[in-house]
Nucleic acid binder design. Structure first.
Lengths: 335, 335
DNA sequence: CGGGTTACTGAAAAGGGTTTCGAAAAATAT
DNA sequence: ATATTTTTCGAAACCCTTTTCAGTAACCCG
């Protein structure tokens, strides 16, 4: 804690040069004799000089800092996106200002103002669900990229998981395994994620010329609902041979109830989950086949596109990022 | 995106005053006529003027920004601490620079330098476990508070959960319920959290004049280990009437295996977990009694103490934050 | 009407770095 | 030796805000 922090002035006087020369030497510019540069570098080292990012930013207008605005970072989905973004930024020498609005619009405005006054170079807005959210980009003056939850303004840049594709991928896997009486148990209808997956299911079924086994069962994203749905389904349609669940939680509950009823997974009924939430998907018995939304990659991609947008190369629109099927025992071939 | 951003200069000319007057008017200082202030405020509003935090920080030497350095924010424990801290800072108009070192010392140094060059007012270091970690405070020039994982330097300020007290609290609950043959299944011995809880168990047992049922079973923090431990335990010591598990994951596996063996929870065997990881503790059947480490509160407290430290009122040492017992069905009175 | 207050206002400096431009020094050409 | 070019260096402006300090105008009182 050596009292005051060293400035370039201190470095310059210790090296016996002007601050202009010191600056050039430190930043690797031309027009500095090698021996002089050597002296300046040594002086900087001795004083453990760190250029003041505030002064630098004030002059250049670039803070090399981005804001990360999340509505609900407590949620499972925000975190991986956030980590992916942080990772991409860290590699690019960018710093991340984290703001959690806790789903409160007032707080969001407040954070937005704070970020703007700190002159961030750009902004990533991480949604709490894949439902479109109000755009904040209007008149903001800095580029914004939306991740997970897209903006409602098509002019904005958004990155979301391709839930339609993910669901279709899961269904195609079941169909390829020879399952023909496939049910679909999912979460609340007001989630776009749930509706998109319904669309993906329909797509895959119609391509295969199949009918869904019964109506889609809407519920909650909970294990409890998975159990309940399993009980209803085994009663009403005991002939089903596969179920696509809207989340790993639902799938975990479903599997548990199926086993308790004396039916086997995957032999009698194959089960697929969604999210690849590893604490759940790998710990259930049998381990869950599930759809991974690659959220960390999504966050990283969003961050990279924010870089591009900062450089003036924005790519407006909603970009759907492919999901990935992770195959485990709950759909193992009943060979 | 109105081209350049408005400066106080623009506000001043629009209001027809000098920049000094504008500044005073905006900051609510004396020596400005009410009508003049009114005009300035209107001008600022019209230009949507936001004072440049860089210029302000450069002058005052205070950035109203703190660094949050985590080793592993992917972990379950870092997140709540982080959220609590972010919450406390947000309320105090502070901004949070998030850095995740991913457990890499080089990356940590790099982030540390970046934070310092941005002139953060303080730093919170969030550990990935409660094992003590290398101090970063030496010669840093800004106050540092450690959360969850304490610093190895007793001169530093650290906040950690009181695992000894938490474990004792759990055991006392079992003892109060009349259980007398209590076993302890926990995670790897190289975790200080596991060792502390062993100490808490011993404390509670000796106070009650009881012996532990068998040796402590060390394993991993997984559900798999919980199941395995249950199988071993039911074989070797079928007389046990309660188990204290080192985590909710272990407890969930334990409960599952116990039920499969035809023994009832809590009637035959009461089970307590640790962490209060709600997706697990509330979804198992029966729902788990568990110890909550109040991590969000811990993060908030750490943040508040960082404020104090920034004001020069540091309170060195390791502060243990009390845990809280959350009682659910897995220890329900078998009345 | 002059002296002493009081109420405002504005010029200027400071904070730390980068960059431009001009000047000095050194090297080369004439 | 002088003229010209090249290299190296330093003074000063600039980024934006806050704050100090000096100055102006209005006001009150004698």
């Amino acid at each position: 804690m050596a009292g005051r922090r060293a400035t370039i002035n201190d470095v310059a006087s210790l090296a016996g040069v002007s601050i202009a020369t010191a600056s050039k030497a430190l930043n690797g510019r031309q027009d500095v004799r090698a021996s002089t540069r050597q002296r300046v570098l040594a002086a900087a080292e001795e004083l453990s000089f760190q250029p003041n990012a505030l002064a630098r930013g004030l002059l250049s207008g670039q803070t090399r800092t981005v804001g990360l605005l999340t509505s609900d970072s407590a949620g499972r989905f925000g975190i991986p996106v956030l980590l992916g973004a942080e990772d991409a930024f860290g590699a690019g020498e960018m710093a991340v200002l984290l703001c959690d609005a806790r789903g409160d619009a007032i707080r969001e405005q407040h954070h937005l103002r704070a970020l703007l006054s700190r002159r961030v170079d750009g902004l990533i807005v991480v949604g709490e669900s894949t439902n479109p959210r109000l755009s904040v980009s209007r008149d903001l003056g800095v580029p914004v990229v939306y991740a997970y939850g897209p903006s409602d303004d098509p002019e904005d840049v958004s990155f979301v998981p391709d839930d339609v594709g993910g669901a279709a991928m899961a269904m195609n896997h079941l169909i390829a395994l020879g399952r023909r009486r496939i049910a679909h148990v999912t979460g609340p209808e007001h989630y776009k994620a749930a509706r998109d997956r319904v669309a993906g299911v329909a797509l895959a079924l119609s391509e295969a010329g199949l009918e869904q086994a019964g109506d889609t069962l809407w519920g909650t994203w909970s294990q409890r609902w998975g159990r309940h749905a399993a009980e209803m389904l085994l009663m009403a349609q005991p002939e089903i041979d596969a179920v696509f669940c809207g989340s790993d939680q639902v799938a975990a509950g479903f599997v548990e109830a199926v086993r308790e009823r004396g039916r086997r997974v995957p032999d009698d009924i194959a089960v697929i989950g969604y999210d690849n939430w590893e604490v759940l998907s790998t710990e259930t018995r049998p381990a869950l086949t599930t759809v991974d939304m690659n959220l960390e990659l999504l966050g990283r991609t969003a961050a990279q596109h924010l870089f591009a947008a900062i450089d003036g190369r924005a790519t407006p629109g909603v970009h759907r990022m492919p999901c990935q099927l992770v195959i485990r025992d709950s759909t193992a071939s009943s060979a």
